[in-house]
């Protein structure tokens, strides 16, 4: 993963002032929007630590809302996002907290039916590290298949088999077992784009409690 490209160095084109606090915040908003995957009507956002302390001066709060609304990191609307008609249709509360147990740049999104946590790890790179009770790792660089399945032997192998059959390379897999014999969350990063038919096949074969396909973020 140590590959650095020339384009990485001379990018992104973004709204300032900080890649982790502004561009990272927008990217977190965009990724959470992909994960939630339906119209967001109401959300409570909690910014932690450095995100709370220096967030407003860096436009972290604006960036997060802009991302949730689907605006990209280089959109000059971000500065005035709170005054846009799009934002006025969204019911949101932003809170600020200090917590020693959380990453310096972290944030929670509390929807009525889902909780998502994310952090900004530097240089605009981000990670969603929790959905509801499951810890996982989604960085927006890969298309990701997220599943919650009954913890039974060989489930993972069967899923991997279906993905492979569809000619898609698996970049990484990480799993989190909530409690033995209960549910496991599984986060499969893919090199390509998976077909709907393959997702249907997994649904039929495995009968997961939850399956969601999350597209990577654009450049």
């Amino acid at each position: 993963m140590n590959e650095i490209s020339i384009l990485d160095i001379i990018s992104p084109i973004m709204v300032g002032p900080s890649s982790s606090h502004t561009a990272g915040a927008v990217r977190i908003g965009l990724l959470v929007r992909n994960i939630y995957n339906k119209k967001i009507k109401k959300v409570k956002i909690i910014l932690y630590n450095s995100y709370a302390k220096t967030g407003p001066g860096h436009g972290t709060d604006k960036g997060i809302i802009a991302g949730l609304l689907g605006f990209n990191v280089d959109d000059t609307i971000i500065k005035d996002i709170f005054n846009t008609p799009e934002a006025s249709k969204l019911e949101y509360i932003i809170d600020w907290e200090e917590s020693f147990t959380r990453h310096p740049n972290s944030v929670d999104f509390i929807f009525d039916d889902m909780t998502i946590s994310a952090k900004s790890v530097g240089g605009g790179e981000i990670e969603v590290d929790r959905i509801n009770d499951f810890s996982l790792s989604i960085n927006g660089k890969y298309n990701v298949l997220v599943l919650v399945v009954k913890d039974k032997p060989s489930t993972l192998a069967r899923i991997a088999d279906i993905i492979q059959k569809n000619d898609i390379n698996i970049a990484s897999i990480n799993c989190d077992r909530y409690a033995r014999g209960k549910n496991t969350s599984c986060c499969i990063a893919l090199d390509g784009d998976i077909k709907n038919s393959a997702i249907e096949e997994i649904k039929k074969e495995i009968n997961p409690c939850l399956i969601r396909y999350i597209n990577k973020l654009g450049q």
Partner: peptide, 16 residues
């Protein structure tokens, strides 16, 4: 200054 005003810039290599 544009960066600190939340203007559009190129992070090259960083925003700062």
């Amino acid at each position: 200054e544009e960066n600190a005003r939340m203007g559009r810039i190129v992070a090259c290599p960083t925003a700062g």
